[in-house]
Design a binder for these strands. Structure first.
Lengths: 336, 336
DNA sequence: CTGAAAGCGCTTACAG
DNA sequence: CTGAAAGCGCTTACAG
């Protein structure tokens, strides 16, 4: 029914080898043959079968991408970048949503292995020992985005979380704030947790402000936790003038708490977020936040992975620049 | 290096046919053979090669999904549902981001064809004549999500846009509003445009309110357009008390305009959105809106597609229920 | 219950 | 410049 390479070979009066050659732009045929073959391909509406090609090639031109949750803006922004670059380079991407439960990742890894993907990108996920083992057995390149690892041979691309948190806190200090709380994400989270708390602390220290651990509270990166923790913080110390949240969702949760409790943002409370999701500029007042270039992170990760696939070599990690987006949630305090 | 079915056959002292049978849970071997084979599979760490299987099977257990823009919450919510159900059923999903330019869709269709996907889901996209032709040639099942078509043989799953817009407008009327404007999306858009405008008009008519076309303005579904159009509407008639926007982003744009111009929402202006994106509940005040069950839309689309792939038959379209989420942006007007 | 063999649709030495 | 043939790793009649 659907024509194969044999059919076009027959109709062109050449061998399948020759058809294959013109299809792949190799050399070893006259221009005349080429024209003939191209013409019958056109006529028959022939499309090569990538599965067959992959079987003999041992290359599928397919990348696997693992996300804890594809449906959030953070993940989908990265996915967009990954997909775009991959497509430009002739690769397709298989998406995997792992967060539902822990061993789903292992199941996905198996699927990706069976489907013979050329490489894998892990987004926002740490590499557990058990993943590393499977990955080793698969023997294909892996890159991490918005995550990191000490495991040499696995490059990562991310922002400098510590520095970004430092900058956010330092900005608040520069605007005259002294009593600054922090709403952290999950306690101990090695990427978006600990480093951001450290950056916050360091900024205080460098400005001669005493760190008070009671002013650091831990949520789960969700809106609800930001709101709840803001309440907790304020009930313990109503003189807090600024808060740095480890992600926009929590920052907006904090704003919600304040605004719903008659506390004006930024007049009575300044807030700085982290991520620069679209919603941060849709809020009223719009949220001052740390920008993470999601799309670029995705593109870079994709580029690194493809480079590894095609060269067989290793590629260095990248720290991508962040920036602070000044909007309307921070008030400059006069210091007398 | 990596073991193949031949290797396990040899080591188990059986034929590859037998190994294949136990692998696929067919019958035709003793329990003893089965145990032996399973054991050596375990020992060798054998994993079947899905590419090879696909080549002889003519089934890839892979679905292609086309989105105009994967990075927005709308698309990624649907993707989440699609992916989740597909995975449960043993299918993988290849994502395609088409919106960059028009003929990207055609290019993707070709990739999906070469990669021999078992079926395709189009999200939020109309089927152009040229797509239909290619799709016909591919001869695989297709389903539409958040879109529709008259083309029999292609089921769709969506909300009743006309009805949902009707409900939104009717709600505003029920709260005592009479002077209600509408911020529509792209003029003439056959899904999210025209039907929603019609629903809006019908609700007015059914309540004895004269439709005034000057009160219907057309944007592009983006935040900025919502804000700009709200300004335009209000400059022409400052007595508008309510506005229905065809998507949350525009609704929030409208809120932004109002709040930034000293117009209180909902005290001076009520607004109803459409979609129920996460940000609608993060706004202050939180947005009253029409809920579209994105995740479910995705799951249902996925389910339909897999059913078609596996039965070879056709499946009916579905209209999924929407609902109105009452939050804080609509004020009940006293009518004297 | 089991195996030999053809076939899926390509690519790629190898030989000429 | 060109072709015959082996091979990629499976599945599936067919025969026993």
């Amino acid at each position: 029914m659907v024509p194969t390479i044999r059919d076009v070979a027959k109709k062109s009066n050449v061998s399948v080898a020759t058809v294959s050659r013109v299809l792949n732009g190799l050399n070893g045929y006259s221009d005349k043959t080429k024209q003939k073959v191209l013409k019958t391909i056109e006529e028959m509406g022939y499309q090569p079968n990538a599965i067959a090609r992959s079987l003999s090639n041992k290359r599928t031109q397919t990348l696997g991408v693992m996300f804890p949750d594809v449906s959030n803006e953070f993940s989908s922004g990265i996915l967009h970048g990954i997909e775009e670059l991959a497509h430009d380079r002739g690769y397709s991407v298989l998406v995997c949503n792992t967060a539902v439960d822990g061993n789903r990742t292992l199941k996905y890894l198996q699927v990706l292995r069976e489907k013979q993907v050329d490489g894998i990108i892990f987004s926002s996920e740490m590499l557990k020992e058990e993943y590393i083992q499977v990955l080793d057995a698969m023997n294909i390149p892996v890159v991490l985005v918005s995550s990191e690892t000490k495991y040499s041979g696995i490059p990562y691309v991310k922002v400098d979380d510590r520095m970004a948190a430092y900058d956010a806190t330092n900005y608040l200090i520069g605007q005259g704030h002294r009593n600054i709380a922090m709403i952290s994400g999950t306690k101990g989270d090695p990427i978006a947790g600990t480093p951001r708390v450290e950056g916050y602390k360091q900024a205080l220290v460098d400005n001669g402000i005493t760190v008070n651990d009671a002013k650091i509270v831990y949520g789960n990166f969700r809106f609800e936790s930001g709101s709840r923790l803001m309440g907790q913080l304020l009930s313990e110390d109503s003189s807090i003038t600024g808060v740095f949240a480890a992600c926009d969702e929590m920052a907006i949760g904090a704003m919600n708490y304040a605004m719903n409790n008659g506390i004006s943002v930024p007049d009575q409370l300044s807030v700085v977020g982290y991520d620069n999701l679209k919603l941060s500029e849709m809020m009223v007042p719009s949220l001052t936040t740390i920008h993470q270039p999601l799309y670029d992170l995705g593109r870079i990760a994709s580029e690194k992975l493809i480079a590894m696939v095609e060269t067989g070599g290793i590629v260095p990690s990248s720290i991508v620049p962040h920036s602070l987006i000044e909007r309307q949630t921070v008030k400059a305090l006069k210091t007398y």
